[in-house]
């Protein structure tokens, strides 16, 4: 039987997890998402999107559902396993004090699911302070270290200089190297979907970081989309890429590279810009790929 991919959305309290969930529910990119949240609390789903609602489950038009799991995530996942048709993805919004590796281990016990990746949302307005806090510094560091993708959120709330400091601390001290920056948790589902590529491509190992390097680039003002696509396709060591960029005439493009094939198409919606590029460690030339954006 096909296993359902699970994406864990981790991060400390107030980082922007719920905002991300709200954004994804608004634009699920045609996917049927099942979202598990600790409690409905701040979750703001437009009333006109809600088809049915009870204490623990909200059905949303388009086939998405949202469940609260309270203190029993394994139980909620087991219940979800009976749900037909199975959702395309399950997203778990963990509690602010949860350790991602614990949840990953727990999901690993359940048949019918596989862990597609862990996203950690970092609140740039206070992360440096929290990383020095006597009570929670070890918890925040553990959340960052045990994630596949770091989303630096609320970047508008800190200076460019501070943002560099944050990036440095996260990539050097905490050894996390796949980082995207945004405000208002504005990350498209396409980028999260790419996580599945990371995990699937390295299912033999526990640590995606051991095999792959990755980078997120934010190309805009691109005069020749096809040329950018080809440059990426031919970049040394590249395995996969997926995301959006903007050309010089402010058109949005979807780009996908997988199994040596390039797919490029113009899209109407204004998905957030950002391309996740993944390549084999030791072969992948991150600096060349990063320089594509500067051109």
């Amino acid at each position: 039987m096909k296993e359902t991919p699970v994406i864990l959305v981790s991060g400390y309290l107030g980082a922007g997890k719920t905002t991300l969930i709200n954004n994804l529910l608004r634009e699920p990119n045609g996917k049927r998402l099942a979202i598990l949240v600790n409690e409905f609390g701040e979750l703001a789903i437009d009333e006109d999107l809600i088809e049915a609602k009870d204490d623990n489950l909200i059905s949303i038009s388009g086939g998405c559902i949202c469940c609260s799991f309270g203190d029993d995530l394994s139980g909620a996942l087991s219940d979800l396993a009976k749900f037909l048709p199975a959702p395309d993805y399950i997203l778990i919004e963990s509690s602010g004090v949860a350790l991602p590796n614990q949840i990953v281990a727990n999901v690993g016990l359940l048949n019918k699911f596989f862990m597609a990746g862990v996203v950690c949302i970092v609140d740039c307005s206070n992360v440096l302070q929290k990383l020095r806090d006597g009570y929670v510094s070890d918890l925040i560091a553990s959340q960052i270290e045990n994630s596949n993708l770091i989303i630096l959120n609320k970047t508008d709330a800190c200076s460019a200089q501070k943002l560099e400091l944050i990036k440095e601390q996260i990539s050097v001290d905490l050894n996390a190297n796949l980082i995207a920056s945004t405000t208002f948790s504005n990350i498209s589902f396409e980028i999260l979907e790419e996580l599945q590529g990371i995990s699937a491509a390295c299912s033999d190992t526990d640590h995606a970081d051991d095999v792959f390097d990755s980078v997120v680039i934010y190309p805009s003002n691109i005069d020749d989309p096809v040329n950018l696509g080809n440059l990426l396709l031919n970049a040394t060591g590249i395995e996969r890429a997926k995301g959006y960029f903007e050309d010089i005439a402010n058109n949005r493009w979807l780009i996908q590279i997988s199994s040596g094939a390039l797919q490029l198409k113009q899209v109407q919606d204004h998905f957030p810009i950002g391309i996740v590029v993944i390549g084999l460690k030791g072969h992948f030339d991150i600096s060349t790929v990063a320089s594509l954006v500067q051109r």
Binding site: D72, S74, G75, Q102, A105, N106, G108, L109, L110, D206
Partner: peptide, 27 residues
């Protein structure tokens, strides 16, 4: 092939039957 901090594995590669913490106990 089970890999979970709350589930020790015996020499035969199968869980020993001891389950630590609510995460391992609940299922």
């Amino acid at each position: 092939g089970i890999n979970h901090p709350g589930i020790p594995i015996g020499n035969d590669g199968y869980p020993t039957g001891e389950l630590y913490g609510p995460d391992a106990m609940t299922p």
